[in-house]
Amino acid sequence: MKPIAICAAIFCLALSACTKKKADYQAEIAKVVPEYIEFKEATSIESGAYRISIEALNGKFYKGYNELRIKVSDKQSKQEVKVSAVTFLPIITKADGTKASGPHRYQPNYLASEHYFSGYAVFTDESGANGEWDLYLSFDVASTSYRVQKRVQVEKQANKNLNMVSFKAKDGADYIIALVSPQKPKVAENALVAGIYRYNPPLDAPSGEFPDPGQFSYAEVGGYTLQLDPRMPEPSMGNHSSLNNKDLVQKDDGFYHGVVNYTMTGNWTLNLIMLNQQGQILKGTVVPTDFTPGVEGVKSELYIDILF
């Protein structure tokens, strides 16, 4: 039986050699793209007997679009306080002392059922060398006005799917486009949501002690269209694109909604063309559709890079 035993031994030896592991697709996607669904307190300010709490996803402010929930409570009883005339203004003070803001909702609206004021802020930069952010809030409780200010930390947005872009368009205005959703795209058809904001230059000189909102005004633009052409920019991908994508148009919530298909995970560029209500191109160029392996994909003059 010896030769057979030798055969068997070789067999076992051959079997025990190692191989490659399969990709853990679900874990891989979760690692690259953190998804935040929980609102946590990002900062709080105390004024008189009241405590103002501002909640954001993951309890942090990030560069780009941030949905915010503002709650005012009694310091002692921790009960919700009936407040009115809430205003919210984020301001960045740059290294040279100039001040600016980003798109925001100056008058957050109260959601009675949820017991908070709903607002948002698009932070155009992260805190640090480029400047520091302060939040200015005011509110009335029983005809007494309160004004508070708080320096906050705006962090880098690690999730490229929530990137933003700011630019000057052909109409001479400054615009910001910020991605709102999806946070965690899939290799599939994804609903794509973005906000388009236009900077309103101040008409008058600044007035008052507290920052004048007239100096820092942004408008949510209505009736525009964002034409979409998603492509993989890596030279190796040869300008690869996907199919069944839909341009972004405005819906009732003020955001622009469209559809983007991702055929694989990796780097993607959302090539955009922004059209105004009359269908005139305000920004963006048509990108070539040829398959060009080895050549980095040409991007539109208006684009946002994402990664998942």
Binding site: A23, Y25, E234, P235, S236, M237, M264, T265, G266, N267
Partner: peptide, 20 residues
């Protein structure tokens, strides 16, 4: 049956591209 496709950009430190 499982088959994977992972592409590496020239810059290997960059994120790879993945599909099944």
């Amino acid at each position: 049956s499982i088959a994977e496709m992972t592409m590496y950009p020239q810059d290997r430190s960059k994120k790879t591209m993945f599909a099944y």
